[in-house]
Amino acid sequence: MINVTLKGGVVKEFEAGTTAMEIAKSLGMGLYKAACVCRIDGAVQDLRTPLTADCALEILTAEDPEGLRALRHTASHVLAQAVKRLYPQTKLAIGPAIDSGFYYDFDTDVAFTPDVLDAIEAEMKKIVKEALPLERHELEPADAIAYMEEKGEIYKVELIREHADKGEKISFFKQGEFDELCAGPHVPDTSRVKAFKLTSATGAYWRGDSSKKMLQRIYGTAFPKKEALEAHLAALEEAKKRDHNRVGRELEYFTTVDIIGQGLPILLP
């Protein structure tokens, strides 16, 4: 048996090997449904982590920045899975959570037009409905490289090589047929990504290096509940109305001209 110190200093006994998820359930269905990740002795981890020794445990929902970040990170995995399902030839680069949402970079010839983004969103909704659990597993670096090479994921291979000499195992998160190179943490399963939206697609250089390949980046945002998502999207619409890059050009305060170049605006009288 292990002693787990919960919020407020309450100490409860559990069998060794109990996961944070199971503990959350024992504390209440409400908490269990809202839980995203947890903090074990100060380190953020996913809820499937088994507790093997006495520790302090904090269950984090999306109200906590780490919980929200994990939710959005999982959303980016769902995005990548959807893109691979629809366009299997696509090579995956990197997809993190960011300040207001998430993005994922893809190496593909497919143009991410609004119609294509709609199709990807629809596939993402399917994946959410499938409620696929996200399960962490590890491989030795050499095996991880072989695994990714077999799948043709050249960018993942590059990323693994960078970590290979640290002497650590390489972690992956599997959700259904999709296995993603990732340190985590993630929410327990894809059904948690209930309220999300893909917002735009742009170009982005691999590693931000303009001498490397131009990838395609899809941006999105995710929230724990629909209302929060809708409020955010409404605020975004309002912001676009004030965006100087749009308003300033419309009102002819400035312009940019291709032949002069990017980042060289002409101020108009």
Binding site: G203, A204, D243, H244, N245, G261, L264, P265
Partner: peptide
Amino acid sequence: EDSGEMHGLIRVRQ
């Protein structure tokens, strides 16, 4: 500045 960083009037090269 990196071309990817350019944004309207906020981040420019001149």
